[in-house]
Structure formats: C-alpha cells, structure tokens
Design a protein around this nucleic acid. Sequence first.
DNA 1: GTCTATACTCTGATAGAC
DNA 2: GTCTATCAGAGTATAGAC
Lengths: 197, 197
Amino acid sequence: MARRGSYAKGVAKREEILERALEVVAREGYRGASVKEIAEAVGLSQAGLLHYFDSKEELFTEILRKRDEHDGDEFRTDAPGAARAAYLRVIRHNVQTPGLVELFSRLAVEAADPAHPAHAYFLERTTELRAQLAQQADEFSGIRDVPPETLARIVQAVTDGLQLQWLLDRTVDMAGTVEALFAILDDARATQDGKDD
Amino acid sequence: MARRGSYAKGVAKREEILERALEVVAREGYRGASVKEIAEAVGLSQAGLLHYFDSKEELFTEILRKRDEHDGDEFRTDAPGAARAAYLRVIRHNVQTPGLVELFSRLAVEAADPAHPAHAYFLERTTELRAQLAQQADEFSGIRDVPPETLARIVQAVTDGLQLQWLLDRTVDMAGTVEALFAILDDARATQDGKDD
DNA sequence: GTCTATACTCTGATAGAC
DNA sequence: GTCTATCAGAGTATAGAC
C-alpha cells in the first residue's frame, strides 16, 4: 500500500490521530469541536494536525469513517435472522457516544453541498446501508405494494430522525421506537399475507 | 401589545425583515447564509440587522417561526380526515423551499445544546406536532400495543430523516415515502383489528 | 429609536523556519 | 514532520451620528 517509508509513516500517524480523535469526540462530546481542541487532545498544534488532513471537514469525515469501521467489526453479523438485532445493538451503542451522533448529524446536513468532502461518503454510506436493509427481505420487508428499497429508506429515515429528536431530548428511546417500527412492519406483513389478490 | 409607538415600529420592522429574510432563504437557498448576506438582501448593514435580533441564532430561529406561521395559515385544516392530506401538502411544499429545509435541519442539530436560542423552539414545536399527530388517532394511530405518541414520533422521525436524505439527494421522494408509511400503518391496524385477545 | 462605522475575537487555512 | 506566525473571514459588541 505504502510506496515509501515516509509515506507509510504518514499513514500510520494518520490512523493514530483518527483513533485518538474518535475516542475524544466519543467521550468528551462534540461541542462545536474545533480543530485546535482535537489537535491538543491528540498532542499536536492546529497546523500540525492539519498537516495530515486537507481540511477540518476532511478530518471529521475520516473520523466518521473510522467509526463505521469499528461498528462493522463489533456489530456486523452474518447469522441469518440476526440483522435486526445487530441494527438495534448499534443504535443502543450510539447512546453511549453522543458526540459522534452529533458529529454525524451535523455533517449529514453540511454534506448536502456536493462540493463538501463528506458528500460522497454520505451518499455511499446511505446507499450501502439501504441495500443491506433491503437485502434482508425476510426481516425488513415482505410487504407487497411497498418495494424493499422504500422500506429500507423508511427504517433509515426513522433512525436518522430519531437521532435528531434524541440530541434535543436525551430521554427519547431510540432503540425502543425502532423496535416498535419493526413490530408494525411485521403486522403490516401479516395483513398482506392474509390477502389473496 | 406595543407599549409605545416607537416600540411598535421596531416590531413592525422586525416583521418586515423576517418576511424578507424568509423569502430570500427560500428562494436563494441557505448556502451557509451569513448574517451579512441576509442583511444586504434586506437592505441593511450587518450591524443594522443585528440591532433587531440578539444574535445570528435568534434571527434564524425567528425565520423558522415565521415559516411555521405561514405553513399554519396555508395548510392547517380542521376538516375531519384531512390531517394526513395537509401533512403531505406541507411536505410537498417543502420541496419548493430547499433553503428553509436546510436551515431547519441545521438548526435542529445545533439546538441540541440547551443554551442555544432555538432549543426551546424545537422542543415546543416537536412536542406540539407530536401531540397533533397523536390526537388524530383515527388517521395516524389505532394500532394496539403501540401508543399513539410512539406512532407520532415515528411519523415525525421519518419526515425529519427523509429531509436529510433529500438534502443529500434531491431525487428522493419525501411525500411518496411518507404515503407508503401511512399505507403500512393502515395495514398494521387492519391486522390488529383482526385480532381478538 | 435607528443605523453606520469600527474594532475585537475566534476559526480554519497557509507560508515558511527549523 | 512539526512548529510559529500570519492571514482572511465570520460573528459579535460598542460608540456615536442622525
């Protein structure tokens, strides 16, 4: 991967910075986290940190990517019928890392601009996640007249929307509400199964 | 309401500014709208504009309040059975004002901080909207085992989440997806109606 | 009361010394 | 590779003209 030693060292340092930044944001919250704050937490000056990233926005995008990596390692499952449970575990874990939820939501809005460094990241992430959900047809879909992609989009929208509600009011039960949605989807499917046209 | 003529004039000017700012943001988009930009669009200097508002955040919060007023005037209905249709009309109208959708989503995240001027606004708005939805039990709820407040929260979360998806990808069909959710709720209710325990 | 001019502070970005 | 110094731009606060 690395073409030269110095390049490889740069990559390693980048990873080290991201791991540390991820931890800091998760633990201490976002609070309009400036580059300077993260730099100090990581043990660098502001300019020193930006040596490894093109901009603040790119740094934050990479922090979110790193989180996805960790979540994938920790929660991904191939066990049949376990997709919902894994999904809910991620949501419950998010409650432990409010700073990352805030960073995610904030960047999701800012990335609306196609020129934003996180624009591609969010498009890819959202598309991939939707494909995963739609693929678990047995668990997430099976309702006639409503395509799996639309069901996946609804589950995704509820999750993102609940994060906004939860950021505003920490007593909101994100996982419980998503579970309620799953129950509703099951009921709707049962209705459809009963029909015969 | 006004204690003196001069105070009334200040209020009138404030209203005029808000109307104009609402129009500008709706038409020209948000694009990280600075106070300066809005001030110029309104025909004032930056400091002149901030004479009428405590801060940038308060200005933006008031712009959103003004939008709620307009939406209420235009779309609110008391006709029985028309709540869903009115809700969908607002969503379709939002597609015409992307700048306001972006402003709303952005402030929704920033208002997570209890010290933010928009914090109270979002809490009130979200609570009131949820109460309205939950109240329309015939249209929005009626599913046993899932309390109306939870159903209302789900509808609300889907709406907010779809806005995030739509900001990222303008081909997303917000109204159509919410309609699909309504259909699913109807199906789930039909299932429950069939049960007898 | 209304508004302009100005200055202060903070941020992210960049150039250049070491 | 990392720092210091510096810059441009934003939001905010103030003095004071009218």
